[in-house]
């Protein structure tokens, strides 16, 4: 089997007494992977080790089979957009990209062509000659994404790429990331805003206090949560009647009534879902909506990271 794009084995990174990453062992598959975690969880540390900016304190991490630190061959195949701004303050957006592309090995003419194309791709075709210092935060964020993508890397490491973007730009950036993945690039994108990642991928890595709390498809992670009760919110015309019917179902642990809805808490959500159509149809209860708040990634995140899984 071929080497995964990113492989970490017992990877730890310490900043003095502070733990950045602790004993992380993970394979990041091709495609888009979301790196989720709260601020200070270790997302940026993982991305910086993967980008070859910092060395692991213990263990090791490989990109396409080789360690990335001070490795030009890896940097040639990697595009990294860090969380903070890293620009030459006086530079113009286009010149900055041209300079980075020249460092990546492109001749001036090709670098200019690619810089213009990259700016166009992130929706900034007119800022080539605009000073970065005069650009808005959203513009600088998009220039940063362009700088990571302009040399067509095989691996994109994007640290909070959507922060500072307005909703429309965010949607465009998400489409852009998806397009890159469809063209064969592996994308590791970090965020602490969960719905941003939900829109990009279902393959996630959940980081907490420097450790991987969970990894895989959202549904797989949800399966890990079987020991936690799950909630089902049913909007209907007669919540109390439906509640009484549901009490007969096995695994129901709690019932709560809201305005025009009831919230059932259960250890066996599948049974409740299976029984619900029969109950509703058999007793003529009009149901206007069913949702499970625990199906949302936010809940998975809160349960795993917020102490539920510890």
């Amino acid at each position: 089997m071929s080497e995964p794009p990113i492989r970490a084995e017992r990877l730890s990174r310490f900043y003095g007494d502070v733990i950045g990453l602790m004993d992380v062992t993970i394979d990041v598959p091709p495609g888009i992977t979301g790196l989720l975690g709260k601020n200070g969880a270790g997302k940026s540390s993982f991305l910086r080790v993967a980008a070859g900016e910092i060395r692991p304190s213990q263990g090791h991490l490989t990109i396409f089979g080789t360690p990335p630190f001070a490795n030009a061959a890896v940097h040639r195949r990697t595009g990294y957009a860090p969380e903070g701004d890293r620009f030459f303050p006086e530079a113009r957006a286009g010149d900055f990209l041209v300079h980075l592309l020249r460092l990546s090995g492109y001749v001036r003419r090709e670098a200019r062509r690619r810089a213009a194309a990259a700016l166009e791709e992130v929706g900034l075709p007119t800022v080539f000659r605009k000073r970065l210092a005069a650009c808005s935060r959203g513009m600088r964020q998009r220039v940063k994404i362009a700088s990571a993508m302009a040399h067509d890397p095989d691996l994109l490491l994007l640290d909070e790429p959507l922060s500072g973007l307005d909703p429309l730009a965010r949607r465009e950036a998400q489409d852009l990331i998806r397009r890159r993945a469809e063209r064969g690039a592996t994308v590791l994108v970090s965020s602490h805003v969960l719905h941003e990642v939900e829109h990009l991928t279902r393959n996630i890595l959940l980081v907490n206090r420097g450790r991987i709390a969970a990894a895989g498809d959202v549904s797989e992670i949800r399966a890990l949560l079987s020991r936690f009760p799950r909630r089902i919110r049913i909007e209907c015309a007669d919540p109390k009647r439906l509640g009484a019917l549901l009490l007969a179902e096995e695994g129901l642990t709690a019932l709560r009534f809201e305005e025009g809805a009831l919230v059932a808490e259960t250890d066996a959500a599948d049974r409740v879902y299976a029984a619900l159509p029969g109950l509703v149809a058999g007793h003529g209860i009009e149901v206007t909506g069913i949702e499970s708040p625990d199906d949302r990634l936010e809940t998975v995140y809160d349960l795993l990271v917020g102490g539920g899984a510890e």
């Binding site: 091709p30 495609g31 888009i32 095989d154």
Partner: peptide
Amino acid sequence: VFEQGYRRYSGSRARRI
């Protein structure tokens, strides 16, 4: 996408400078 096999994007690389 994440279930697809790894495909290298065939971007053109200029000569080394």
